[in-house]
């Protein structure tokens, strides 16, 4: 590469001297200062003693000299003198001495800080959103949403799915007679008892509305049957609620029981909302059907529709047949009921 013309070299030198205020130190192999010069005062350095150890005078050089490499650069070093410098260290192979060059780095530091601050804040916000999604939807769904790879068309598609509604019985009177802090503390005990089994059985939490949770099974890829996963989830939820109730009862606290409704059939699934704020949702007759079944379920009871019952690979024989008249349906329907656990009384 050809050398730039002398006039340009001089210009570049002038810019460097004017903007970067170079200062230099020469340090011998024993770490003592041989000589120094340049704009040391600009970097807050004064009264250096030639012949004395440089690390005692400029502690930020502790351990850096002699440099094992021919050159080393440390960018944006904010020194004890409250200055910001780029530190260049050159090793003179012949004499064995080290040269330390300090260049003012405040301007570049400020620009870099503004950009880095913005980038890091964006990353933190994205991580926080991911955590919020994880806590509501379960990690796998949240990850799929963040990566835009939920295995459905976001514009919506029809799927065979199993819908489950779980709700705490008598929660409304409890919330009316209890202070709000106690209501929320109680919800925060019961809701995880419902959410964790859903996530563990590849269900998607569609919504949490007060004391009720809606979940969809059969959308996330799994080899297991969606109706069976939903029933397994329901059994685990009721077990968790029973355990929680035993604990609360032993502490003299009010306890609540859950009722669960499950229905299987074709539903429309997709994403609702804007790109910045959207969520998974399932819509259709079977969603309403599951909700109605849950409304009829007694404390500790799982009510499933015929289709769910037909597709069960286990537990089918444990269910008892019932006939119910459900709101919005003209004829009575055949449903199946299970009380999987002995409850506290």
């Amino acid at each position: 590469m050809s050398q730039p013309p002398a006039i340009l070299t001089q210009y570049l030198m002038d810019v460097l001297l004017e903007e970067r205020h170079p200062a230099y130190l020469e340090v011998d192999e024993a770490g003592c200062l041989l000589r120094c010069g340049g704009a040391l005062g600009h970097h807050g350095i004064d009264s250096l003693q030639v012949g004395a150890p440089v690390e005692d005078q400029l502690p930020f050089l502790l351990g850096l000299l002699p440099c094992p490499d021919p050159r080393m650069v440390l960018s944006s070093v904010q020194t004890e003198q409250d200055r910001c410098v780029d530190v260049h260290i050159l090793q003179d192979a012949q004499s064995g001495s080290s040269w330390v060059i300090l260049l003012d780095a405040r301007s570049e530091h400020q620009q870099k800080q503004a950009m880095q601050q913005k980038g890091n804040e964006l990353s933190l916000r994205s991580q926080k959103q991911s955590r919020v999604l994880n806590s509501h939807l379960g990690k796998s769904v949240a990850q799929l949403l963040m990566e835009d790879s939920l295995p459905i068309r976001s514009s919506g598609e029809r799927r065979q799915a199993t819908i489950m509604f779980s709700d705490l019985r008598d929660f409304t009177p409890f919330s009316e007679r209890s202070p709000p802090e106690e209501v929320f503390a109680t919800l925060n005990q019961y809701i995880p008892a419902m959410l964790n089994p859903i996530q563990a059985h590849s269900g998607i939490v569609d919504k949490i509305a007060g004391d009720a949770v809606m979940a969809v099974f059969g959308v996330l890829g799994t080899l297991a049957s969606a109706p069976q996963l939903a029933v397994d989830t329901a059994i685990e939820i009721l077990r968790n609620v029973d355990r929680l109730n035993a604990q609360r009862a032993s502490q003299g606290q009010d306890y609540l029981e859950a009722g669960i409704g499950i229905a299987t059939g074709p539903v429309a699934v997709g994403l609702i909302g804007t790109r910045e704020r959207r969520g998974f949702s399932a819509i259709g007759h079977h969603v309403n059907f599951a909700s109605r079944l849950q409304g009829q379920a007694r404390p500790g009871e799982i009510l499933v529709d015929e289709e769910t019952h037909r597709l069960l690979t286990n537990d089918g024989q444990r269910f008892a047949e019932r006939t119910l008249t459900l709101k919005g349906l003209a004829a009575p329907v055949r449903v199946f009921s299970l009380f999987p656990h002995t409850r506290i009384r």
Binding site: P59, F60, L74, S75, S76, V77, Q78, T79, E80, C84, A105, H109, K112, Q113, Q116, Q117, N120, E121, L124
Partner: peptide, 12 residues
């Protein structure tokens, strides 16, 4: 308040 660090800040 979060303030990102650029390079290195030296304290004693």
């Amino acid at each position: 308040k979060y303030l990102t660090t650029v390079g290195v800040k030296i304290d004693k």
